[in-house]
C-alpha cells in the first residue's frame, strides 16, 4: 500500500463505501424476487456447479460407503429389530389411511393440507462462509419451484426456498440464523394440536428453537414437532424434530422449547422440493388440481397424521 492516503485514493474509498452501503440497502430491502443479472449469473454458475457436483457427490458417496462397510453388522442387527416394528406400523398406517379416506368421503372433502407433490433436486452448492446457512439446488422457476416452498430430505423438513432463478434456487435451511427464518409448526399431542413457530437455530444448545407455545399447552419432552400447514406453501405433517427441553420464556407468558432436528442438515445430496396441492378453498380449483394430479401420475402422498383436520380452535 505505497500511496494509500493520497487524496484521489481517499475519494475513491469514500465512493466505494457509498456504493457498498447502497448495494447492501438495495439487497436487504424486502424483496420478492431477484433481478435478472443476478438470475443470469446464478443460472450460468449453476450449470457448471451441477456438472461438478454430480461426480463429486458420487466420489464422496463412494468413500462414505467404504467407511460404512465397517459397521454393517451392527446396523444390520438394529435394522432387523426395527423391521418387525415397521411391518406392524405399516399395517396400521394402511387401516388409518382407509379410515381417513372413508371419513373424508363422508364430509365431501377431496383434498387436505396434507396433499403435496414432490420434485427431486440435486444440491449444487452450500454457502461457504457460514454467516448464512443456505444451499443451492438445480431446480428453478422453469421446473415449477417457487418461493417459500418446503424442502425436505427423506428424514424431514430442512428448509424453504428463499429465491429462485430460472434453473436454480437457493434454499434457506432451518438452521439459518436469519430473523425472517420462521416456520409455522405444531406439536402432535394426544389431544388438540399445539401451534407454535420454529425460529432459527440455538447456537449454544445445538437445536432448533420452537417459540410462542401457549402456556396452557400440554407439552412434554420427546413429542414430535411437525409443520402445521397454516402458513405459506407448506403442507401439513412434515417432520421437523422432537422436543428435547422446555422452558418458560422471559416474560412467563409462553413456552420456548428446544427441538432436535429429525433431518441431517450437514450431508445433503438429494433434496425434495414440496408443493402443496390443496391451495385454496375454492371447490372448482380444488377439483382441477386433483384431476391434474391423477393424469400426471404424481400421487399426492398421504402422511400419517392422527390430528389432521383437528382444526385450529385456538
Amino acid at each position: 500500500m505505497p500511496h494509500f492516503f493520497s487524496n484521489k485514493r481517499l475519494i475513491l474509498l469514500m465512493v466505494s463505501i457509498i456504493v457498498l452501503v447502497s448495494l447492501i440497502g438495495f439487497s436487504t430491502r424486502n424483496n420478492e424476487t431477484i433481478t435478472w443479472p443476478e438470475k443470469f449469473l446464478r443460472d450460468t454458475t449453476g450449470v457448471v456447479q451441477s456438472l461438478v457436483s454430480r461426480p463429486a457427490h458420487m466420489t464422496a458417496g463412494f468413500f462414505g460407503n467404504v467407511a460404512d462397510i465397517f459397521n454393517v453388522y451392527e446396523e444390520n442387527q438394529m435394522l432387523k429389530s426395527r423391521m418387525e416394528e415397521f411391518a406392524s406400523l405399516s399395517a396400521e398406517l394402511e387401516t388409518v389411511k382407509q379410515e381417513n379416506a372413508t371419513l373424508r368421503e363422508m364430509i365431501d372433502s377431496e383434498s387436505s393440507l396434507n396433499d403435496y407433490t414432490t420434485r427431486t433436486a440435486l444440491v449444487i452448492h452450500r454457502s461457504p462462509d457460514k454467516w448464512t446457512d443456505m444451499i443451492g439446488i438445480n431446480k428453478g422457476s422453469q421446473n415449477g419451484v417457487s418461493k417459500n416452498m418446503a424442502v425436505v430430505t427423506s428424514e424431514g423438513l430442512i428448509g424453504k426456498v428463499k429465491t429462485t432463478s430460472e434453473f436454480t434456487s437457493s434454499v434457506q435451511l432451518l438452521s439459518d440464523d436469519s430473523r425472517t427464518n420462521r416456520v409455522s409448526a405444531m406439536v402432535a399431542t394426544d389431544g388438540e394440536p399445539v401451534y407454535a413457530f420454529i425460529e432459527g437455530w440455538n447456537e449454544e444448545e445445538e437445536g432448533l428453537m420452537l417459540r410462542k407455545i401457549q402456556s396452557d399447552a400440554e407439552i412434554k419432552e420427546g413429542q414430535q414437532v411437525i409443520t402445521s400447514g397454516l402458513g405459506g406453501l407448506f403442507p401439513r405433517g412434515l417432520a421437523i424434530g422432537t422436543i428435547t427441553s422446555l422452558e418458560p420464556d422471559e416474560f412467563g407468558l409462553s413456552y420456548n422449547a428446544l427441538v432436535e432436528p429429525a433431518a441431517d442438515y450437514y450431508n445433503l445430496e438429494q433434496v425434495n422440493v414440496i408443493e402443496r396441492t390443496s391451495e385454496t378453498l375454492d371447490d372448482t380449483i380444488q377439483q382441477n388440481t386433483n384431476e391434474e394430479n391423477e393424469e400426471d401420475e404424481e400421487e399426492p402422498v398421504e402422511v400419517e397424521d392422527p390430528d389432521a383436520g383437528g382444526g385450529g380452535s385456538s
Binding site: L23, S27, E38, R42, T45, D129, W131, T132, T163
Partner: peptide, 21 residues
C-alpha cells in the same frame, strides 16, 4: 455475493479492498 449469499456488496467491497492493500 450473488451466488453464495443474499446480500450484494459485502464481498465485492471487502475483496476489492483486501486486494488493494
Amino acid at each position: 455475493d450473488i451466488v453464495y449469499t443474499d446480500i450484494i456488496g459485502i464481498y465485492m467491497f471487502s475483496m476489492g479492498f483486501t486486494a488493494y492493500i
